[in-house]
Simulated scan of single mutants.
Amino acid sequence: MNPGDLRHKIKILTNQKTTNELEETTYEFLPVKTTWAAIIPQTGSLQKQAVDTILTNVTHKIIVRYSAGKDITKDMRIGYKNHEFEIKYILNPYFKNETLEIFVQEVLT
Results as ranks from 00 to 15, higher is better:
Trp36Phe: 13
Lys61Val: 05
Met1Asp: 03
Ile39Arg: 05
Thr18Gln: 13
Ile10Asp: 04
Leu100Glu: 02
Leu6Glu: 07
Ser67Ile: 10
Glu21Asp: 14
Leu55Ser: 13
Pro31Cys: 05
Glu23Met: 09
Leu46Asn: 13
Leu13Gln: 09
Thr35His: 02
Ile102Leu: 07
Lys88Asn: 07
His83Pro: 00
Ile12Met: 10
His8Arg: 14
Phe29Glu: 01
Leu6Phe: 15
Ile78Arg: 02
Val32Phe: 01
Lys48Phe: 10
Glu98Ala: 08
Glu28Ile: 09
Ser67Cys: 06
Ile54Met: 09
Val51Gln: 12
Gly79Pro: 00
Thr34Ala: 08
Phe103Pro: 00
Ile10Gln: 06
Tyr94Gly: 03
Ser67Glu: 10
Leu6Asp: 05
Lys81Thr: 10
Val107Gly: 00
Glu28Arg: 13
Arg7Pro: 01
Ile72Asp: 03
Gln47Cys: 02
Lys70His: 06
Val104Leu: 04
Gln16Ile: 05
Asp75Met: 03
Pro3Arg: 12
Pro93Met: 05
Gln47Lys: 14
Ser45Pro: 02
Val104Lys: 07
Asn2Met: 11
Lys88Gly: 07
Val104Trp: 12
Arg65Val: 07
Lys81Glu: 13
Glu28Thr: 14
Gln42Leu: 15
Glu24Ile: 03
Ile54Asp: 00
Ile12Trp: 06
Glu21Phe: 11
Ser67Phe: 07
Leu55Asn: 12
Ile90Ser: 01
Ile62Val: 14
Trp36Ala: 10
Arg65Trp: 09
Thr18Glu: 10
Lys48Ala: 03
Val64Phe: 04
Thr19Trp: 05
Glu23Cys: 01
